[in-house]
Design a protein around this nucleic acid. Structure first.
Lengths: 132, 132
DNA sequence: ATTGAGCTTCCAGTCACTGGAATCCCTATA
DNA sequence: TATAGGGATTCCAGTGACTGGAAGCTCAAT
Protein backbone atom coordinates (compact mmCIF):
# COMPACT_ATOMS: atom_id res chain seq x y z
CA UNK A 1 0.00 0.00 0.00
CA UNK A 2 1.38 3.43 -0.91
CA UNK A 3 1.35 6.45 1.32
CA UNK A 4 -1.59 8.14 -0.40
CA UNK A 5 -3.97 5.29 0.23
CA UNK A 6 -2.75 4.94 3.80
CA UNK A 7 -3.31 8.65 4.35
CA UNK A 8 -6.86 8.33 3.12
CA UNK A 9 -7.61 5.24 5.17
CA UNK A 10 -5.98 6.42 8.40
CA UNK A 11 -6.94 10.07 8.14
CA UNK A 12 -3.30 11.13 8.64
CA UNK A 13 -1.80 13.32 5.90
CA UNK A 14 1.21 11.94 3.98
CA UNK A 15 3.52 14.64 5.36
CA UNK A 16 2.61 13.64 8.89
CA UNK A 17 3.03 9.94 8.17
CA UNK A 18 6.56 10.61 6.90
CA UNK A 19 7.20 12.66 10.01
CA UNK A 20 5.95 9.82 12.19
CA UNK A 21 8.36 7.50 10.43
CA UNK A 22 11.18 10.00 11.00
CA UNK A 23 10.59 9.96 14.74
CA UNK A 24 10.14 6.19 14.80
CA UNK A 25 6.41 5.85 15.47
CA UNK A 26 5.86 3.69 12.40
CA UNK A 27 8.35 1.63 10.41
CA UNK A 28 6.88 0.84 7.01
CA UNK A 29 8.84 -1.45 4.74
CA UNK A 30 10.13 -0.32 1.34
CA UNK A 31 9.31 -1.53 -2.14
CA UNK A 32 11.97 -2.02 -4.77
CA UNK A 33 11.23 1.42 -6.22
CA UNK A 34 11.98 3.14 -2.91
CA UNK A 35 8.33 3.78 -2.10
CA UNK A 36 7.10 3.09 1.42
CA UNK A 37 5.17 -0.18 1.52
CA UNK A 38 2.58 -0.12 4.28
CA UNK A 39 0.85 -3.16 5.74
CA UNK A 40 -2.53 -3.30 7.45
CA UNK A 41 -0.74 -3.13 10.77
CA UNK A 42 0.72 0.24 9.85
CA UNK A 43 -2.67 1.66 8.90
CA UNK A 44 -4.01 0.40 12.19
CA UNK A 45 -1.17 2.03 14.11
CA UNK A 46 -1.64 5.32 12.32
CA UNK A 47 -5.36 5.35 13.06
CA UNK A 48 -4.47 4.62 16.69
CA UNK A 49 -2.11 7.59 16.66
CA UNK A 50 -4.76 9.77 15.07
CA UNK A 51 -7.24 8.98 17.82
CA UNK A 52 -4.69 9.43 20.59
CA UNK A 53 -3.61 12.78 19.14
CA UNK A 54 -7.25 13.83 18.84
CA UNK A 55 -7.57 13.25 22.58
CA UNK A 56 -4.63 15.61 22.98
CA UNK A 57 -1.97 13.09 24.00
CA UNK A 58 1.56 14.28 23.25
CA UNK A 59 3.68 12.42 20.75
CA UNK A 60 5.73 10.95 23.58
CA UNK A 61 2.56 9.78 25.31
CA UNK A 62 1.45 8.29 22.00
CA UNK A 63 4.74 6.44 21.72
CA UNK A 64 4.24 4.98 25.17
CA UNK A 65 0.60 4.13 24.56
CA UNK A 66 1.50 2.37 21.31
CA UNK A 67 4.16 0.32 23.03
CA UNK A 68 1.76 -0.61 25.81
CA UNK A 69 -0.81 -1.55 23.19
CA UNK A 70 1.68 -3.92 21.63
CA UNK A 71 2.89 -5.25 24.96
CA UNK A 72 0.82 -8.29 25.90
CA UNK A 73 2.10 -8.18 29.45
CA UNK A 74 1.07 -4.57 30.09
CA UNK A 75 -0.96 -3.72 33.16
CA UNK A 76 -3.97 -1.53 32.60
CA UNK A 77 -2.88 0.63 35.54
CA UNK A 78 0.01 1.87 33.41
CA UNK A 79 -2.33 3.07 30.70
CA UNK A 80 -4.73 4.54 33.21
CA UNK A 81 -1.95 6.53 34.88
CA UNK A 82 -0.97 8.16 31.60
CA UNK A 83 -4.59 8.98 30.87
CA UNK A 84 -5.13 10.42 34.32
CA UNK A 85 -2.06 12.62 34.09
CA UNK A 86 -3.29 13.86 30.75
CA UNK A 87 -6.75 14.52 32.13
CA UNK A 88 -5.17 16.59 34.89
CA UNK A 89 -3.25 18.61 32.31
CA UNK A 90 -6.44 19.16 30.30
CA UNK A 91 -8.26 20.31 33.40
CA UNK A 92 -5.50 22.78 34.16
CA UNK A 93 -5.67 24.17 30.64
CA UNK A 94 -9.43 24.50 30.83
CA UNK A 95 -9.18 26.31 34.15
CA UNK A 96 -6.59 28.70 32.78
CA UNK A 97 -8.63 29.40 29.66
CA UNK A 98 -11.77 29.96 31.69
CA UNK A 99 -9.97 32.48 33.86
CA UNK A 100 -8.79 34.31 30.73
CA UNK A 101 -12.30 34.12 29.36
CA UNK A 102 -13.72 35.60 32.52
CA UNK A 103 -11.42 38.60 32.57
CA UNK A 104 -11.67 39.16 28.86
CA UNK A 105 -15.44 39.04 28.68
CA UNK A 106 -15.74 41.51 31.55
CA UNK A 107 -13.45 43.89 29.74
CA UNK A 108 -15.34 43.47 26.50
CA UNK A 109 -18.65 44.18 28.20
CA UNK A 110 -17.30 47.38 29.71
CA UNK A 111 -15.99 48.70 26.37
CA UNK A 112 -18.36 50.85 24.37
CA UNK A 113 -16.83 49.81 21.08
CA UNK A 114 -17.50 53.07 19.31
CA UNK A 115 -15.48 55.71 17.47
CA UNK A 116 -14.10 57.29 20.65
CA UNK A 117 -10.63 56.43 21.95
CA UNK A 118 -11.60 55.68 25.56
CA UNK A 119 -11.18 51.97 26.11
CA UNK A 120 -11.29 50.06 29.39
CA UNK A 121 -9.58 47.12 27.71
CA UNK A 122 -6.50 49.19 26.98
CA UNK A 123 -6.71 50.87 30.39
CA UNK A 124 -6.65 47.49 32.07
CA UNK A 125 -3.73 46.26 29.98
CA UNK A 126 -1.94 49.48 30.82
CA UNK A 127 -2.31 48.62 34.49
CA UNK A 128 -5.00 51.08 35.47
CA UNK A 129 -7.42 48.91 37.46
CA UNK A 130 -9.78 51.82 38.23
CA UNK A 131 -10.72 52.22 34.60
CA UNK A 132 -11.41 48.58 33.82
CA UNK B 1 17.81 51.28 33.97
CA UNK B 2 19.45 47.97 33.10
CA UNK B 3 17.65 44.88 31.88
CA UNK B 4 17.75 43.09 35.24
CA UNK B 5 15.87 45.80 37.08
CA UNK B 6 13.37 46.11 34.22
CA UNK B 7 12.83 42.36 34.30
CA UNK B 8 12.07 42.53 38.00
CA UNK B 9 9.75 45.50 37.72
CA UNK B 10 7.87 44.34 34.63
CA UNK B 11 7.78 40.65 35.45
CA UNK B 12 9.23 39.78 32.04
CA UNK B 13 12.47 37.75 32.07
CA UNK B 14 15.56 39.32 30.48
CA UNK B 15 15.65 36.74 27.71
CA UNK B 16 12.12 37.58 26.75
CA UNK B 17 12.77 41.31 26.85
CA UNK B 18 15.67 40.88 24.45
CA UNK B 19 13.42 38.78 22.25
CA UNK B 20 10.75 41.48 22.32
CA UNK B 21 13.35 43.98 21.20
CA UNK B 22 14.41 41.60 18.41
CA UNK B 23 10.90 41.51 17.04
CA UNK B 24 10.42 45.23 17.51
CA UNK B 25 7.96 45.37 20.40
CA UNK B 26 10.21 47.61 22.49
CA UNK B 27 13.09 49.84 21.42
CA UNK B 28 15.23 50.66 24.44
CA UNK B 29 18.08 53.11 23.97
CA UNK B 30 21.70 52.12 24.54
CA UNK B 31 24.24 53.39 27.04
CA UNK B 32 27.84 54.08 26.10
CA UNK B 33 28.87 50.63 27.34
CA UNK B 34 26.46 48.90 24.97
CA UNK B 35 23.96 48.02 27.68
CA UNK B 36 20.29 48.58 26.99
CA UNK B 37 19.06 51.74 28.73
CA UNK B 38 15.38 51.45 29.57
CA UNK B 39 13.10 54.35 30.44
CA UNK B 40 9.91 54.24 32.48
CA UNK B 41 7.97 54.10 29.24
CA UNK B 42 9.68 50.84 28.32
CA UNK B 43 8.86 49.25 31.67
CA UNK B 44 5.28 50.34 31.21
CA UNK B 45 5.13 48.82 27.74
CA UNK B 46 6.62 45.56 28.95
CA UNK B 47 4.10 45.31 31.76
CA UNK B 48 1.37 45.98 29.19
CA UNK B 49 2.74 43.13 27.09
CA UNK B 50 2.88 40.87 30.11
CA UNK B 51 -0.79 41.44 30.88
CA UNK B 52 -1.85 41.05 27.26
CA UNK B 53 0.10 37.80 26.96
CA UNK B 54 -1.42 36.58 30.23
CA UNK B 55 -4.83 37.04 28.62
CA UNK B 56 -3.60 34.81 25.81
CA UNK B 57 -3.25 37.42 23.06
CA UNK B 58 -0.78 36.45 20.37
CA UNK B 59 2.35 38.49 19.87
CA UNK B 60 0.86 39.99 16.72
CA UNK B 61 -2.29 40.96 18.62
CA UNK B 62 -0.06 42.48 21.30
CA UNK B 63 1.74 44.49 18.66
CA UNK B 64 -1.56 45.84 17.38
CA UNK B 65 -2.90 46.51 20.86
CA UNK B 66 0.26 48.41 21.78
CA UNK B 67 0.05 50.54 18.68
CA UNK B 68 -3.62 51.28 19.38
CA UNK B 69 -2.71 52.15 22.94
CA UNK B 70 -0.23 54.69 21.66
CA UNK B 71 -2.55 55.99 18.97
CA UNK B 72 -4.54 58.89 20.39
CA UNK B 73 -6.95 58.75 17.49
CA UNK B 74 -7.84 55.09 17.93
CA UNK B 75 -11.46 54.04 18.10
CA UNK B 76 -12.39 51.69 20.92
CA UNK B 77 -14.28 49.54 18.43
CA UNK B 78 -10.92 48.49 16.97
CA UNK B 79 -9.71 47.25 20.33
CA UNK B 80 -13.01 45.59 21.08
CA UNK B 81 -12.96 43.72 17.78
CA UNK B 82 -9.54 42.21 18.53
CA UNK B 83 -10.68 41.22 22.01
CA UNK B 84 -13.88 39.67 20.69
CA UNK B 85 -12.02 37.63 18.09
CA UNK B 86 -9.70 36.43 20.78
CA UNK B 87 -12.61 35.54 23.06
CA UNK B 88 -14.10 33.48 20.26
CA UNK B 89 -10.81 31.63 19.84
CA UNK B 90 -10.64 30.98 23.58
CA UNK B 91 -14.19 29.64 23.55
CA UNK B 92 -13.32 27.30 20.72
CA UNK B 93 -10.32 25.99 22.60
CA UNK B 94 -12.37 25.49 25.74
CA UNK B 95 -15.03 23.60 23.81
CA UNK B 96 -12.43 21.38 22.21
CA UNK B 97 -10.74 20.66 25.52
CA UNK B 98 -14.03 19.91 27.19
CA UNK B 99 -14.88 17.42 24.48
CA UNK B 100 -11.51 15.71 24.98
CA UNK B 101 -12.10 15.80 28.71
CA UNK B 102 -15.47 14.16 28.31
CA UNK B 103 -14.20 11.27 26.22
CA UNK B 104 -11.11 10.79 28.29
CA UNK B 105 -12.84 10.74 31.64
CA UNK B 106 -15.35 8.17 30.39
CA UNK B 107 -12.50 5.97 29.26
CA UNK B 108 -10.69 6.37 32.54
CA UNK B 109 -13.78 5.45 34.51
CA UNK B 110 -14.23 2.28 32.51
CA UNK B 111 -10.64 1.12 33.03
CA UNK B 112 -9.98 -1.08 36.02
CA UNK B 113 -6.44 0.14 36.39
CA UNK B 114 -5.07 -3.10 37.77
CA UNK B 115 -2.33 -5.57 36.88
CA UNK B 116 -4.30 -7.17 34.05
CA UNK B 117 -3.72 -6.19 30.44
CA UNK B 118 -7.38 -5.60 29.47
CA UNK B 119 -7.81 -1.90 28.92
CA UNK B 120 -10.80 -0.09 27.42
CA UNK B 121 -8.63 2.98 26.86
CA UNK B 122 -6.36 1.08 24.52
CA UNK B 123 -9.31 -0.70 22.94
CA UNK B 124 -10.91 2.62 22.14
CA UNK B 125 -7.71 4.05 20.70
CA UNK B 126 -7.37 0.88 18.64
CA UNK B 127 -10.75 1.63 17.14
CA UNK B 128 -12.86 -0.98 18.88
CA UNK B 129 -15.90 1.02 20.02
CA UNK B 130 -17.60 -2.02 21.59
CA UNK B 131 -14.92 -2.37 24.25
CA UNK B 132 -14.76 1.24 25.36
C1' DA C 1 7.64 9.73 -26.09
C1' DT C 2 5.29 12.49 -23.20
C1' DT C 3 2.21 13.94 -19.72
C1' DG C 4 0.57 14.11 -15.09
C1' DA C 5 -0.06 12.22 -10.70
C1' DG C 6 2.16 10.46 -6.96
C1' DC C 7 6.26 9.34 -4.68
C1' DT C 8 11.07 10.56 -2.77
C1' DT C 9 14.38 13.61 0.10
C1' DC C 10 15.81 17.75 2.19
C1' DC C 11 15.47 22.41 3.92
C1' DA C 12 13.02 26.04 6.04
C1' DG C 13 9.29 28.09 8.63
C1' DT C 14 5.75 28.17 12.28
C1' DC C 15 5.07 30.30 17.70
C1' DA C 16 7.06 32.31 21.64
C1' DC C 17 10.30 31.73 23.89
C1' DT C 18 14.49 29.33 26.49
C1' DG C 19 19.15 27.37 27.32
C1' DG C 20 23.85 27.66 26.71
C1' DA C 21 28.42 29.29 25.22
C1' DA C 22 31.76 32.80 24.70
C1' DT C 23 32.89 37.27 25.75
C1' DC C 24 32.61 41.95 27.79
C1' DC C 25 31.67 45.46 31.60
C1' DC C 26 31.37 47.16 36.28
C1' DT C 27 32.08 47.18 41.15
C1' DA C 28 34.11 45.74 45.38
C1' DT C 29 37.49 43.69 47.96
C1' DA C 30 42.37 41.84 49.18
C1' DT D 1 46.29 46.97 41.36
C1' DA D 2 44.85 42.42 40.49
C1' DT D 3 41.08 39.68 40.66
C1' DA D 4 36.68 37.74 41.47
C1' DG D 5 31.79 37.97 40.99
C1' DG D 6 27.67 39.21 38.99
C1' DG D 7 25.41 41.06 35.31
C1' DA D 8 25.43 42.49 30.64
C1' DT D 9 26.24 41.41 25.50
C1' DT D 10 25.67 38.44 21.04
C1' DC D 11 24.75 34.36 18.54
C1' DC D 12 23.29 29.63 17.83
C1' DA D 13 20.35 25.87 18.71
C1' DG D 14 16.32 23.51 20.52
C1' DT D 15 11.40 23.09 21.86
C1' DG D 16 6.40 20.46 19.65
C1' DA D 17 4.22 18.79 15.98
C1' DC D 18 3.86 19.49 12.09
C1' DT D 19 3.56 22.04 7.22
C1' DG D 20 5.11 24.18 2.79
C1' DG D 21 7.96 24.13 -0.99
C1' DA D 22 11.65 22.78 -4.23
C1' DA D 23 14.00 19.41 -6.99
C1' DG D 24 13.90 15.13 -8.74
C1' DC D 25 12.37 10.03 -9.40
C1' DT D 26 8.56 6.42 -10.72
C1' DC D 27 4.55 4.79 -12.75
C1' DA D 28 0.44 4.33 -15.68
C1' DA D 29 -1.93 5.96 -19.56
C1' DT D 30 -2.16 8.10 -23.89
Amino acid sequence: MNIGEVAERSGIPPKTIRYYEDIGLVRPQRSGNGYRAFREMDVHKLAFLGRARALGFSIEDCRTLLSLYEDESRESVQVKAIAEDHLTAIDEKITQLQSMRETLSHLIKSCHGDHRPDCPILSDLAGDPARS
